[in-house]
């Protein structure tokens, strides 16, 4: 929005962001063929790349930079709700059906031990 206060994104700015997004897409595509370590590493890398692309698109392409605090607040609140919804539902299913604390802790320990030994 052509505001006196905020310098407007120019043609070149969008072009740079566009190229960075393309580069990251190719990077994440290439990375999917590289298997180092357990699958969790691949997931983490792909997630980081997607997050970078997302924030690039959000701040530059969509102009979140110039928005007032209320819009930024809305987006942050949505991000928190997303994390809450995913994390809480996940904790319910990760220890599916097993109950006692001792058993769960034991299961997690076994999992880590296998990961360390197995790889």
């Amino acid at each position: 929005m052509s505001d006196e206060k905020h310098p407007e994104m120019c043609w070149g700015g969008y072009y740079v962001v566009y190229n960075v997004l393309l580069l990251l897409t190719i990077l994440t595509f290439a990375f999917s063929y590289v298997h180092l370590g357990p699958h969790a590493v691949n997931i983490a890398v792909a997630l980081v790349i997607a997050a970078v692309q997302g924030s690039l698109g959000l701040f530059f392409m969509m102009g979140m930079r110039h928005e007032d605090r209320l819009s930024k607040g809305v987006f942050l609140f949505c991000a928190c709700l997303f994390t809450i919804a995913v994390m809480v539902t996940l904790t319910d299913f990760v220890f599916l059906g097993t109950y006692s604390v001792s058993h769960q802790v034991a299961q997690v320990m076994h999992g880590l031990a296998d990961a360390a030994v197995g790889q």
Partner: peptide, 20 residues
């Protein structure tokens, strides 16, 4: 937004979550 689990205390949800 963070209390919905009290509908599911006996629904087979993990009791640790029940506590939370």
């Amino acid at each position: 937004f963070i209390v919905w689990g009290h509908h599911m205390f006996v629904s087979g949800m993990n009791p640790m979550l029940g506590m939370a």
